[in-house]
């Protein structure tokens, strides 16, 4: 069983959803982001999404755009991101790592080489924002050969018929983009999430995580209660950005503030589930 499947199974047995925090690799530098990554599981991360910086993140809002720019400035490369995951994996064999990014850096690295090296580094799943199932044939076989899940995005605009098509190309879990918009902007209501989840569950047995627009502990608890997991990205990156000094360097506040926020989110997700259960 893959790390992703095992983790969701364990959480289901515990009767709660997953907290899935996001960090941008090399933001604001390799050392800080690796330290953050390593400390995330203890702070309550059940799975972790690691963003691969790209120069033109056209589905992302300003907060993730700035994080990507900081990462690139700090020298992020595909190879560098994979080395960072490998360093994490030496110490943590359990926590699933999902790489999230855009297709072009992966193409430049080579589809098959990327999948093989990512799996070797300890990556469990891939989310490529601009690779819809229509174009995914270039990556599906190498990912499968390497044992990587391709996590599919599903949006409020995805009609039922298309939902079945998209999900036929999904593995690992399903990422529900809860708003029509870019990351870190609006937030969907609990009622909207409930009806969307009913629609998705009718089409798949895979676990479902909700992302885009989840900022507060309450929102995370609601999403993780309705679905199987909640992704929090922009809110954490905004906190990280606040702690940087005027030259954009990490300070002694950077790790504690971000990790503290993850702890609060994790506590809410865990407590929320008890109430629901």
């Amino acid at each position: 069983m893959s790390r992703i499947a095992a983790r969701f199974k364990t959480l289901a047995a515990q009767g709660r959803g997953a907290l899935i925090p996001y960090l941008e690799a090399f933001d604001p530098d390799l050392e800080t982001s690796l330290a953050l990554l390593k400390a995330m599981p203890a702070a309550g991360a059940d799975l972790i999404e690691v963003g691969m910086p790209f120069s033109d993140p056209s589905a992302d809002g300003p907060i993730i755009q700035l994080a990507a720019i900081r990462g690139l400035k700090a020298g992020a490369s595909v190879a560098g991101v994979l080395e960072m995951i490998a360093a994490f994996r030496k110490e943590d064999q359990e926590t699933p790592i999902i790489l999230m990014g855009y297709l072009n850096p992966v193409e430049a690295y080579g589809h098959a080489r990327f999948c093989a090296d990512a799996a070797k580094a300890g990556v469990d799943g891939l989310i490529l924002v601009d690779l819809p199932p229509e174009e995914a044939d270039i990556l599906e076989q190498p990912a499968q050969d390497a044992g990587l899940d391709i996590i599919r995005l599903v949006a409020p605009t995805t009609p039922d018929e298309r939902l079945r098509y998209v999900l036929s190309h999904a593995s690992g879990f399903v990422y529900y983009v809860s708003i029509t918009g870019i990351t870190g902007t609006r937030t969907a209501s609990a009622a909207e999430l409930q009806s969307a989840l009913a629609r998705i569950r009718a089409a798949t047995d895979l676990p479902v995580a909700i992302g885009f627009g989840i900022r507060t502990p309450e929102q995370a608890a609601t999403a993780a209660g309705i679905a199987d997991g909640a992704v929090v990205a922009s809110a954490l990156l905004a906190t990280l950005a606040e702690t940087l000094d005027s030259t954009g360097k990490a300070t002694d506040q950077t790790l504690p503030r971000v990790l503290g926020q993850i702890e609060t989110l994790a506590a809410a997700v865990r407590a929320g589930e008890k109430k629901a259960g």
Binding site: E134, A155, T157, T158, V177
Partner: peptide
């Protein structure tokens, strides 16, 4: 091709 986020695919 069509290399866009899922939100735009139906459109």
């Amino acid at each position: 091709g069509r290399f866009v986020a899922e939100t735009l695919m139906p459109l």
